[in-house]
Design a binder for these strands. Structure first.
Lengths: 231, 231
DNA sequence: ATGATATATTTGGTCAACCAATAATTGGGC
DNA sequence: GCCCAATTATTGGTTGACCAAATATATCAT
């Protein structure tokens, strides 16, 4: 009964440090290409432990804002100035990404993935997609919902597209899609039979190496989601 | 003279630990929702320090594979099973992204961004894009190259599209684009005047709220890059 | 004065010990 | 026998000290 009360969200000290460093960069005190102050100085300046500074720098490194060179220093990447423009704040409150943006972008990627898969798929890809699809159907008919397995099938399509970047991007947004769908309860039980047919149709088009047909099939499949996101 | 010799790339121990944990999950020894063994046990089992395990878990957390609960334990999230399928291996060899995939995907995103920007751009967006464009031209005419500023202009377009996810994805691939361009020396000085005109044309189309025109202009602008990636 | 070499300092990386909050256990009271 | 509180053990978080490599400085021979 208590889990729906507003959760007291204590601001993570590491995120605060990230913000501080972000300010250092965006205010122009440190320009791209220049070195960040050493971890010890930063720790002293912010009045925190060095490990927390290290953790913050680690995150910044993962996002590509800075590059650490062992035994030398941490430099602000040239692209940092690009990412700083808004990426970090996005990461800190990633839940604010609106649902429509997510769906629209997903559709953009999915259609292209289906098109490329129809062109580039190997026989091995076909087998893998089939396995994923059968697995999805099995779970769906038993439990009534199988969002994860659904998305897994879609990921196999992006794999078959042979475009590694497209696939990576699909993987990046997949968790968010899953989260949103679960939260908003998009899945609808009485559409199960329909979605299975749609999936089979997509796979068929890819199998036949029909790019336009694949796009069309994917468009049809995602139509419900589009409508849901538009309301 | 030595800096171009093949650098001996020692596999990062933290990445190795990530692989190990990935295996623990994907092999089914730990299922979504279940707890990961405590950090101390993992450290002992892998024969490494606890800090390294913590760092690995940190990364997994950033990518949403696991969720750490202080003083309680680290649980594998539901989405893990999807992400585990390949996301981690992507993290480990992110540099293997091939150039063609990168360019193709970029074009897909850029065209959609231009289209949406032509529909959704505010007057404020126009001002920002203009500033970015002028800044780009200034640097270009002085130094002869301004890839970063170029990409900054493109990012402003994705901002004007008002699709936050699309913008985030653009930001994610931007560093890789920059890296590839620098490595392959795609930029060509005698095309400077041309690219400036192309940029102005794109901005014009967005300003006029002409989606199709914006797509076309962007296509034209990226034509050189497409040709370069196809050879 | 200049150059190379040896030393000292600074750097990020690593580690083991400690802290506070939580979960599990145990003991007592009803 | 059952339930609740006090205690103990376990958890992730934090800290300061130490390490090896890279850099800056000083020293000395030329």
């Amino acid at each position: 009964m208590l889990e729906n009360l507003s959760r007291i969200e204590v601001e993570n000290p590491v995120d605060l440090i990230i913000s501080q460093i972000r300010d250092l960069i965006s205010s122009g005190k440190i320009k791209p290409g220049e070195k960040l102050p050493p971890e010890r100085k930063l720790a002293e300046h912010f009045g925190v432990s060095r490990n927390q500074v290290r953790e913050a720098i680690n995150k910044l490194q993962i996002y590509g804002i800075v590059k650490v060179q062992p035994q030398s220093g941490t430099t602000v990447t040239g692209i940092g100035i690009v990412a700083i423009e808004g990426l970090i704040t996005d990461i800190l409150r990633i839940e604010k990404t609106d649902f429509k943006s997510l769906v629209d972008t997903r559709i953009l990627l999915e259609k292209e993935a289906a098109r490329l898969a129809a062109i580039n798929r190997s026989n091995d890809d076909l087998i893998k997609m089939n396995i994923a699809l059968n697995h999805y159907e099995g779970i769906l008919l038993n439990d009534g919902f199988a969002i994860e397995e659904d998305l897994l099938f879609h990921l196999k399509i992006s794999e078959a597209s042979k475009n590694t970047v497209l696939r990576s991007l699909m993987m990046i947004i997949t968790p968010d899609i899953l989260k949103s769908f679960t939260n908003l309860k998009v899945c609808n039980e009485n559409t199960n039979k329909k979605t299975i047919d749609e999936h089979r149709h997509i796979l068929e088009m890819i199998s036949e190496k029909n790019p336009d047909g694949a796009i069309e099939a994917m468009e049809l499949h995602l139509k419900d989601v589009i409508e849901f996101s538009n309301k």
